[in-house]
Design a protein around this nucleic acid. Structure first.
Length: 291
DNA sequence: GGGATTTGACCTGG
DNA sequence: CCAGGTCAAATCCC
């Protein structure tokens, strides 16, 4: 577990004890998610500004501690809600959403075929509805895309970027919801992200702790190198992504807002929707009870 | 040139 | 046999 330090921020008793109603859970989740987004925005502005300042490491750690703290609270709330009716953040579908079951067979005990299991066991998966499926604190490499029967949008297949070099077996699939089945109340574009397997990768390859865009960050047009902060074994997103009404995604990169096509969006234009639609992208899977 | 994505082919469980 | 998952060559992009 990588969050020992953050434990000191939380009371020993469950957060749920003081939150008897599901609606309170949702409200708290929403507010904490909002707080997380704001902290991440702030960090995205502050850290690049500090550059190599000697305090940058300390500031980075402080931001990380704050985010760890809220991640712990979110994880705790989600844990509490696993016994409760539908949660907005989790897909309410027993066929696909679930924590890893207790009777999971160890990898080593499984029959080894030339290829990996073609059929995944849904019991080992965990799925989320999210408007920002690509920003969950881990780096993923896409290895396939498939048109699924009856679905309007294709399903994309991702594996951990460090899968090969570190043997991390984590994978995920992302599929955009059909408009007719989209349960989002505001009809924003929603995706279903299903995670398989636990990350065993170790992020230690970055001395500065911050990956620097190849183009020096003026306009972050590279496709896969989102600004990510690595801190020992964990990483979390520094750049902030939010839904855009016309299908674009925008990034708050340093003090520049731009979309996926590299176009810089003037900050005095329509910033309201960007702040309104920002969702939490910090999913702390290390705090899930993977069994 | 290197790394990531795309996409058609292939494999396999149901 | 079909649908879903993966592979790997081709392509793209920095």
């Amino acid at each position: 577990m990588k969050h020992n330090d953050s434990n000191r921020y939380l009371p020993k008793s469950s957060v749920c004890d003081d939150l008897p109603h599901a609606c309170n859970h949702r409200l708290v989740l929403k507010e904490i998610s909002k707080e997380q987004s704001l902290v991440m925005q702030l960090r995205a502005i502050v850290l690049p500004a500090l550059e190599m300042n000697q305090n940058s490491e300390l500031v980075s750690q402080m931001f990380q501690s704050i985010l760890d703290c809220s991640s712990m609270v979110i994880a705790e709330l989600l844990h509490c809600q696993s016994d409760a009716p539908a949660v907005d953040m989790l897909v309410d579908d027993k066929e696909t959403v679930q924590r890893i079951s207790n009777d999971v067979i160890e990898d080593s005990a499984r029959p080894q075929h030339h290829h990996q299991n073609k059929r995944r066991r849904v019991a080992e998966s965990m799925s989320f509805e999210t408007p920002v499926p690509h920003y969950d604190g881990h780096q993923w490499r896409k290895y396939g895309q498939k048109q699924i029967n009856g679905a309007k949008y294709p399903r994309s297949y991702y594996r951990c970027t460090y899968g090969k070099e570190q043997g991390c077996k984590a994978t995920k699939t992302v599929q955009q919801y059909d408009p007719v089945t989209n349960t989002a109340s505001d009809h924003s574009i929603m995706y279903k992200a299903i995670y398989y397997g636990r990350h065993t990768c170790n992020f230690n390859g970055n001395d500065s702790g911050i990956s620097v865009p190849k183009d020096n960050g003026e306009t972050n047009t590279h496709r896969n190198h989102d600004l990510v902060h690595y801190n020992n074994n964990q990483c979390s997103i520094v750049s902030v992504t939010c839904s855009h009404p016309d299908d674009h995604q925008t990034f708050l990169d340093g003090n520049v807002v731009h979309d996926t096509y590299g176009d810089i969006i003037p900050r005095n234009i329509n910033m309201d929707w960007q702040l309104d639609t920002i969702e939490s992208v910090q999913l702390d899977f290390d705090n899930w009870d993977w069994r």
